[in-house]
């Protein structure tokens, strides 16, 4: 009597674990991007991501963290340009509509990274945190000044 119950429990827990794992992996988001090396003298740099929501629901990015380093600031920012003036402003959150691709780019939406000197060739480990409680861990390469510019043009093309 007791034995079947125990095995059923084990299977149930196993299935649950598998499903939750699969769910975490299957956050319907394709992410790629790069960060710029921090120039000497500058206390901050920027990273640019492309976020493709392949799911059927709106995703709201509410924060980005540097994995393992709570004291490093990663802020969602945008550069607005109007009437020939550039204004940098923080963003509360970033909406990625179902089926849409959000492209961060120099002169527009970007992640500001301060408190850390980024060096060309390193990988920047980031955690994207969404309002629905899910999160996604990614790594983006750090590129030098002139490569970043080419990358920018490449993405536009």
């Amino acid at each position: 009597m007791k034995k079947p119950v125990l095995s059923v429990w084990i299977i149930a827990v196993g299935v649950l674990l598998f499903v939750s794992r699969a769910y975490a992996i299957a956050l319907p988001l394709q992410v790629e991007g790069y960060a710029r090396e921090t120039p000497p003298g500058a206390p901050m740099s920027a990273a640019y991501l492309s976020l493709h929501n392949t799911g059927e629901h709106l995703l709201l990015l509410k924060a980005v963290e540097l994995r393992g380093k709570q004291d490093i600031g990663v802020d969602l920012h945008t550069t607005e340009s109007s009437d020939g003036i550039s204004r940098m402003r923080p963003l509360e959150q970033l909406a990625i509509a179902a089926g849409q691709k959000l492209q961060m780019a120099p002169g527009g939406v970007h992640l500001m990274i301060h408190g850390l000197q980024l060096r060309e060739g390193e990988l920047l480990p980031l955690r994207l945190v969404f309002t629905n409680g899910s999160s996604l861990e990614i790594e983006v390469p750090v590129v030098g000044p002139n490569k970043a510019d080419k990358e920018h043009h490449h993405h536009h093309g």
């Binding site: 206390p43 901050m44 920027a46 920012h77 940098m88 120099p106």
Partner: peptide, 17 residues
């Protein structure tokens, strides 16, 4: 200015190109 993570490095990089 140097406390400018986005547009200033972008412009200087473009001027270099």
């Amino acid at each position: 200015f140097t406390h400018c993570p986005d547009i200033c490095p972008t412009t200087l990089s473009t001027l270099n190109s």
